[in-house]
């Protein structure tokens, strides 16, 4: 277990990305199924409230794009790229590991809003200031989306840095 928490091996980090991303893919998929069940009939198939529905499609989109698709790609970047270029690992293995943990923690934080949101007495989970007025309302649940977006977005900087690999192996 400890070796998984402290690993800097690109192959292990790739597998960590894969399973975590797949888990989020299943969660995003569940959100999609609830949406589709609700929309199967005109006047509310499942009796989902407007507010819950807003949260569902917001989370479905955010989860799928940022917590499933991009990290699934990152799983392959991590595992395969060093192998394709004949390298022993990426240029900055610890930064690579840091990226993964930031992704995992950001993703958990984002999904925690489902549980913790009511604790903060939050209201509508907003996507963006579409109509200008909502930005001033102290909607904590909305912050749950925006703050972790910054956190889990930062992992991408690291994944770029890790691609400054040594190309010594390719004769030119």
């Amino acid at each position: 277990m400890k070796t998984w928490l402290t690993t800097t091996d690109h192959k292990r980090i790739g597998l960590l990305y894969f399973w975590t991303a797949f888990g989020f893919f299943l969660i995003g998929g569940l959100e999609a199924l609830i949406i589709r069940a609700q929309l199967a009939r005109p006047d509310g198939g499942l009796g989902v409230s407007a507010e819950t529905f807003n949260q569902l499609f917001t989370m479905h989109g955010t989860t799928m794009v940022f917590l499933a698709l991009m990290p699934l790609s990152a799983a392959f970047f991590n595992f395969i790229i060093p192998l394709q270029i004949g390298a022993r690992d990426v240029a900055f293995p610890r930064l690579n590991a840091f990226s993964y943990w930031v992704f995992l923690l950001g993703g958990l934080f984002l999904n925690a809003s489902f549980i913790a949101g009511p604790l903060f007495g939050a209201d509508r989970l907003s996507v963006a200031p579409m109509r200008g007025g909502s930005a001033t309302r102290t909607s904590r649940r909305a912050s749950f989306r925006q703050v972790p977006m910054s956190i889990s977005g930062s992992w991408d900087y690291r994944s770029w840095a890790s691609h400054r690999w040594r190309r010594a192996s390719i004769s030119s």
């Binding site: 928490l5 402290t6 800097t8 590991a97 840091f98 923690l105 912050s143 956190i151």
Partner: peptide, 23 residues
């Protein structure tokens, strides 16, 4: 081959703590 390190994980944990404080 480099061994592992705890510091990436520990540094990463600081960020959600920061976020919880902000929210």
């Amino acid at each position: 081959v480099p061994g592992g390190s705890w510091w990436p994980l520990i540094t990463a944990i600081g960020l959600p703590i920061l976020a919880i404080g902000a929210i």
